[in-house]
Amino acid sequence: MSEVAVLENDLMLPEQKLVRFQLGDEHFAFSVDSVTGIIRWREVTPLPSQTPHLLGLANLRGRTLPISDLRIRLGIPSERPVEDGYVIVTENDHGSVGFLVDDVAEVITITESDVQEGVSEANSILSEMVRGIVNLDDTLISIVDMNSLIGVNE
């Protein structure tokens, strides 16, 4: 492919920036658009909620931030204690929420053409939430759809 062709390709398919993180042994990413920060795990106050992944409210600079455990949410088993985790803070019209992950790697840039169909495992939650897979340096990264993550809260 000539350089011109690459350039044209990029112009036609705008780049997307995703934040890449790890749950257990698996790699995920979602759009950075609504991400406002990444913080270390901090103590939460549990809520009287029937939602298992909703760990509680944390204090983020004088505001309350609900923390959702993405490992529970996406059904990925992890041995790692929550205290060692990171919280990706997001904010949008549906309110703010912090997602607890095991580790945060980096912000990656992809184009839509990099995204392949398919889900790594037969995991029903994942198949609802993951909209595609990107192969980046031989690592498979599942792209989580932010809207289904924050939209309806079961």
């Binding site: 204090n59 004088g62 309350t64 549906h94 809260n153």
Partner: peptide, 19 residues
Amino acid sequence: IKSISKYCGELPGISGATI
């Protein structure tokens, strides 16, 4: 009084939070 994010849905018995 701090509001609680809409993300949390209905929280019966809780009207808000504070720090």
